[in-house]
Amino acid sequence: MENNQTNTGNATVDIAYRRKKNAEEMRHQVITFTLMIFLTIIAFVAVGAGMSGWFTVPFILLLAAVQVVFQLYYFMHMSHKGHEAPALFLYSGLLVGLITVLAFVTIVWW
């Protein structure tokens, strides 16, 4: 079994360094979160303001896509290494899903 110990050398130095890095990452997470909240508010405002659907629909879909990228890459750490296989399978799933949605909005009623 691979139960590797990844710590190296001096344990206390190691920990202090890692904590700092973790704290820094956490700060990024909070910034991401703020952005997500901001995007959400914009989306709701766009709809609340009663602008034309030709503008709002693509706009809120775009905002949703951006938010999802934030969730995946920051909250779910897909930006870290070791996520190649997860990314491959998630995007494949997304592709199949998008084709399904496309079909259902085009060739179910005609």
Binding site: F89, L90, G97, T100, F104
Partner: peptide, 24 residues
């Protein structure tokens, strides 16, 4: 870790099918 990510890939299709049905 990996198995769960793959499962989420499958869940993506599951929800996509539900969204597609909803939109239709």
């Amino acid at each position: 870790f990996l198995g769960f990510w793959l499962f989420l890939g499958g869940e993506t299709v599951l929800f996509a099918s539900l969204f597609a049905t909803y939109l239709a």
